[in-house]
Write a protein that binds this DNA or RNA. Structure first.
Lengths: 134, 134
DNA sequence: ACAACATACAACCGAACGGTTGTATGTTGT
DNA sequence: ACAACATACAACCGTTCGGTTGTATGTTGT
């Protein structure tokens, strides 16, 4: 089973990889079709090594994969990784949607106070990965 | 009209804001409901100032908005911004989908060579924001 | 009035980032 | 064989990032 830590590491890598316009452009190109690193590098006003590093960042994040063909390294975009990012956003949006559901719960809780124990429905205590001291 | 530069600046800010797990967690909380900065800060093992800065980054990216209520600053998540990020990803995915369409074009071009001019369908010449020297 | 609270912001610090040049290694075409 | 090409990677450098502490300013409850 994948731990939450690993999921967050992956999210860090994915969003970080997407947070640079050169990398997003490289991703666009390799999503459209396979390109060698040199071919990609020719398209930007920076050194080959710089572009190579950008591709490496994308690769580490799983957004592109490379295959060897002779002396060339052909890169292509991984659309699945892109979809996983989209699903992260969808999950966030569902949290937002839950905001309405929670108001419903609150109203239901007020109408029907015969539930188990005390609820303390103060909206502050939901998910929270870090510590809650004392 | 919004220039491409502005769009890219915005994309940089959005992805960068999302590329930190503390910020993603803060965003989750404020998407679920309004919270003061102090309340948020209590949830993390770092100084108030640090959390305040994270909120500021999210705010600059447009992912959260703040309103004043007395001495408190109430932050809440902007789901619209989240959706705009999702649409950026969708746009990228559509580039990928275009890959197939382009192969179709290639095959059509081979089958029917009576098209206008020379095509040079080498897949290298599509969008590219930077310069193409010589 | 005033102490406690909530925020804002500047200054600082080490680590990571985005770029550079240089060097080494393997591939290809002639 | 060998020059040109494609890649990989290390070392370095200025800037940004994520955190800290300190200080100033406004609000609130008693």
């Amino acid at each position: 089973m994948t731990t939450t830590e690993e999921q967050e590491d992956r999210a860090d890598a994915l969003f970080h990889a997407l947070a640079d316009r050169t990398r997003r452009d490289i991703l666009r190109r390799v999503l459209a079709g396979e390109h060698s690193v040199s071919t990609l590098a020719r398209g930007y006003d920076m050194s080959f090594a710089a572009v190579q590093k950008h591709v490496a960042v994308l690769e580490r994040a799983g957004l592109v994969s490379k295959r060897r063909s002779g002396r060339e390294a052909l890169a292509s975009g991984e659309v699945e990784a892109l979809r996983s990012v989209a699903s992260m956003l969808t999950e966030l949006e569902s949290v937002w949607r839950g905001r309405i559901a929670r108001i419903d719960d609150l109203l239901a809780g007020l109408a029907d106070a015969t539930n188990d124990a005390h609820h303390t429905i103060d909206t502050t205590d939901t998910h929270h990965p870090t510590q809650e001291k004392e």
